[in-house]
């Protein structure tokens, strides 16, 4: 039983960590921009998926105007980005130049479908229609080739550093356990052994519903051939 709890815990843990990283780390799309606009947004249940007002402005209101960049990929799929300051908050992009970015995007709008101006648009975040959330654009630059392969060097660097930090943290907890906790445990070791033995006895006496169910399941298995 405890084993399944453990599997569930680690599955949930990794799903959370990976979706957090997938949301926060930058990704790049090659798109042609079709429009830039500003519209008012009333934040509701989805408010944690929105950033904040431009740095230095009042951030108290329940609604404000948000800049948007509408774009289309080469395969015809549409992409809608919001363009908000992250300021000094989370995620730590320290983006203060939304107005400038909006101007750059407006400058790169494709005049027609026949004559596309491709751009590499860096963004983080997710588009979700159910929550009405949009990825936040953080940078844009023009390019000629819509089919080029982009290698995410920045993400490789960040993930490597994170893995190193996680390893360091893991080693430090091991050190902490060895140097600080084990000596204490040794002192109470004998008491603990006694408790452990008693728990083992108790477990043998009462297998519990799950144990009996598993034993029943085991009766369906083939007998090992000798």
């Amino acid at each position: 039983m405890l084993r399944y709890l453990k599997y569930t815990f680690w599955t949930v843990f990794w799903v959370l960590v990976l979706s957090f990283l997938h949301y926060t780390l930058p990704q790049r799309d090659i798109v042609r921009i079709v429009d830039t606009e500003v519209r008012r947004v009333d934040f509701g249940e989805n408010s944690i998926f929105w950033a904040q007002a431009d740095t230095g402005q009042d951030n108290e209101g329940v609604n404000r105007d948000v800049r948007f960049i509408n774009a289309v990929k080469e395969n015809g799929r549409i992409r809608v980005y919001r363009n908000e300051d992250t300021g000094w908050g989370w995620p730590p992009y320290f983006k203060l130049d939304s107005s400038n970015l909006q101007t750059e995007a407006a400058d790169l709008v494709s005049e027609s479908r026949a004559n596309p101006q491709w751009v590499i648009l860096t963004h983080y975040g997710w588009r979700n229609e159910f929550l009405s959330i949009f990825p936040n654009a953080v940078g844009v630059r023009a390019t000629d080739d819509p089919n080029q392969r982009l290698i995410p060097w920045f993400n490789i660097l960040v993930l490597t550093i994170l893995a190193g930090l996680a390893l360091g943290f893991f080693r430090m907890t091991q050190w902490f356990r060895r140097e600080k906790i084990d000596p204490i445990l040794e002192d109470v070791g004998e008491t603990w052994d006694a408790v452990d033995a008693r728990a083992d006895d108790a477990r043998d006496n009462a297998r519990g519903v799950w144990g009996r169910f598993k034993a029943w399941l085991a009766t369906w298995r083939g007998k090992p051939r000798v």
């Binding site: 730590p92 992009y93 320290f94 983006k95 203060l96 130049d97 400038n100 953080v138 940078g139």
Partner: peptide, 11 residues
Amino acid sequence: VIGLLVYVMNF
């Protein structure tokens, strides 16, 4: 790192 990010992201 923050200083570098502010520069690269905005300027």
